[in-house]
Design a protein around this nucleic acid. Structure first.
Lengths: 209, 209
DNA sequence: TAAAAATTCACCCTATTGGGGTGATACCAT
DNA sequence: ATGGTATCACCCCAATAGGGTGAATTTTTA
């Protein structure tokens, strides 16, 4: 059997870039551009009937920005995959976009071949990323290797960070309640804080947990 | 000027696979295999003097497993990049490996060209991943779009998940302490839990936060 | 091997918190 | 107009969190 074309919608405010993508994708075997819009607001009422498999989405746009557009698009087209294509590389935007349901994140220096391959990849459930994005995403998982905290303290801070109380921690680690207190006091000293919330904040900022 | 070769060490217990990689990489222009070991334990005392730029590391190994080996390798060779090359695709292993300092994660069905490219990519500070790994990593960022919680409840649960107390939440959201309590009670009802720790656990498992 | 750090436990204190009930008002959106 | 949302109120009380201070033991590191 012959696979049907991958249907693509483009939402991008720059006319030149938009027609560039449109030309690139439309002239590739197996791909079809079903629509292109200059903003989410322009697309909102029509894109559902276009039934794209993949939506190429820009972040910087007039009106509704790309990040906010993602959940709305997912509501209109639950089975479509949103692939972000933007110049922005701020960690905040990337993680917001992914949290909102983006299936991939490419930066605009991405070569044409990679864009084409990525469209197919998201359509098949993959998660394509530009090299620099992958780097940030991976770094977001990595703990600080030079923590001021000891292993035990880190372990207890991790328990605190999931909302456990002192007594719950004591039970799980088979140590006395007073020992847990003692560790927490040392954690507060080292992190220079005096509450659970501040300890978690500082620890997250420094990737101690 | 001519760039010097990328120096690679391989730690992999399967003899056939290890010599396969060794041959592949050693015969590629610009790459050099400086050493290969069948386990971390075998490598521990010698690898520091090999001074590799990139360490290809297997997860399933006799003795010290790959995940535990990562922080030790990073300690011995702080500037080396660890690239995981394994058949395992369990979410737990992947995130543990990344948290422990792995710079990339490839599965063993990865084509040779991608392996070679990925070695260069980690050496240059990138974060290469196999398609299926990238998918899992991206999914780990995505929130559940159909939460049983209202916006306000989600917001309050997020505050709880960073260790805030009722009164802190009340102050930050400019609502009464009793209102916060009320929301928390509703959250507990909907999630069918009766403590902060359980609420956070359930919420994380269902990606509500 | 000696000093430093980590881990463990003990007992002082008190204001705050957390969780369970129950109920009410007002505002929405379907 | 009915169910969900958001807001606030008052009952209860055991448990918790955070602060002080001190000390024994083991492990790690210099």
């Amino acid at each position: 059997m012959t696979n049907r074309n991958i249907l693509v919608s483009i939402i991008e405010d720059d006319d030149t870039i938009r027609s560039g993508y449109s030309f690139l994708i439309g002239n590739t075997e197996g791909y079809e551009v079903v629509s292109s819009y200059s903003s989410y607001d322009a697309a909102a009422h029509k894109i559902a009937s276009d039934k794209p498999d993949v939506i190429l989405l820009d972040i910087e746009m007039p009106g509704t920005n790309g990040v906010d557009a993602i959940p709305r698009l997912k509501k209109l087209l639950p089975h479509a995959h949103v692939l972000i294509l933007t110049v922005y590389e701020s960690e905040k935007l990337i993680f917001e976009a992914l949290a909102n349901g983006a299936s991939g994140y490419l930066t605009k220096n991405t070569p044409s071949a990679k864009i084409i391959a990525s469209i197919k990849e998201v359509k098949e459930g993959g998660g394509p990323m530009s090299i620099n994005i992958a780097k940030m995403v991976i770094r977001s998982f990595q703990k600080n290797q030079e923590s001021p905290l000891s292993k035990r303290e880190t372990q207890i801070l991790e328990e605190i960070s999931v909302g456990k109380s002192r007594s719950q921690i004591a039970n799980e680690l088979f140590i006395d309640l007073e020992t847990v207190r003692s560790h927490i006091k040392n954690i507060y000293l080292k992190l220079n804080v005096n509450s659970r919330a501040d300890a978690i904040k500082t620890a997250r900022e420094n990737r101690l947990i």
